[in-house]
């Protein structure tokens, strides 16, 4: 623990989650399991990977698209995941290094006159990712490691928002999602609404608004943690990410 933090003895407790680590499943498991796990990883990583290849490797959008397709469709084999050692660093950093290797190999092959392997085509919204590049700040272009991490966080949150929207739709709780959207996701920048204003607009008592918002936030938090559980390779990495993303620390056991 850093020298500036209060100590109260050791800490060790598991955060409950039903999700499995896709990182570990991609390395072993039966083929169906493996494919599902890789799908999970692609969903979280393709956008950061695309932006990263555009910036770090100065690839144009067609090149970047091919490189990212090739990487996720072909290069992410069982052997790649087997090489990942959770003790040595985060999966995110490992994946970024694999991506660098892949780009280097492809460029070498190109220079030698070989064509890159005809990778299966994934249906990813590359045009959308290209448009998002415009949102990057100058600092993102300077520190590409940090940029890759930030884009990853952005994607994890976006996936959790999608999952919350789906969950609300499935449970007939569109009203809950609407409150969450108006208060937490896209509040009016000039005048964020008060609970009372939201209640008046929705024709609900204020206590309902607070209950619904609390439910949506709790579910959102769980959905983010579920995704982190899937996207990390070890308990330690999961905790590290949970702390970084949601400020969650874990409980000490009773001395």
């Amino acid at each position: 623990m850093a020298g500036g933090d209060t100590e109260i003895g050791g800490r060790d407790d598991r955060f409950p989650s039903t999700r499995m680590s896709a990182v570990r499943e991609a390395a072993s498991g039966d083929e169906a399991c493996r494919q599902r796990a890789i799908g999970t990883l692609i969903a979280a990583y393709w956008k950061p990977a695309y932006k990263y290849v555009r910036l770090r490797w100065k690839a144009d959008n067609e090149q970047a698209k091919d490189l990212v397709q090739g990487f996720f469709a072909g290069a992410l084999g069982r052997a790649t995941f087997a090489r990942y050692d959770a003790g040595k660093g985060s999966f995110r950093t490992f994946l970024r290094h694999c991506l660098d290797d892949h780009v280097r190999d492809q460029r070498d092959a190109q220079r030698a006159g070989k064509r890159g392997g005809g990778a299966a085509v994934l249906s990813l919204d590359f045009a959308g990712a290209e448009a998002e590049l415009a949102h990057l700040e100058p600092r993102d272009r300077e520190d590409l490691d940090a940029c890759f991490q930030r884009e990853w966080v952005r994607q994890v949150f976006a996936l959790a928002v999608d999952a919350l929207r789906d969950l609300c739709a499935a449970q007939g709780k569109q009203g809950h999602f609407e409150l969450f959207r108006r208060y937490d996701l896209e509040p009016d920048p000039g005048a964020p609404p008060s609970y009372a204003a939201l209640a008046a607009a929705a024709g609900l008592p204020v206590t309902q608004v607070t209950n619904h918002l609390a439910w949506a936030r709790r579910e959102f938090r769980r959905l983010v943690l579920d995704r982190l559980r899937e996207l990390t390779g070890s308990e330690a990495e999961f905790r590290e990410e949970a702390r970084a993303l949601l400020g969650i620390t874990f409980e000490e056991p009773r001395p």
Binding site: L124, D125, V153, R154, A158, F220, R221, V224, L245, G247
Partner: peptide
């Protein structure tokens, strides 16, 4: 596969929302 782009400000708010303690009807 994924919805609208989330701005840095939106992420900061979502992070806070996920962390905010629930005070119920206090």
């Amino acid at each position: 596969m994924s919805g609208a782009w989330l701005s840095d400000a939106a992420i900061a708010r979502l992070r806070l929302a996920a962390e905010l303690p629930e005070l119920g009807s206090s």
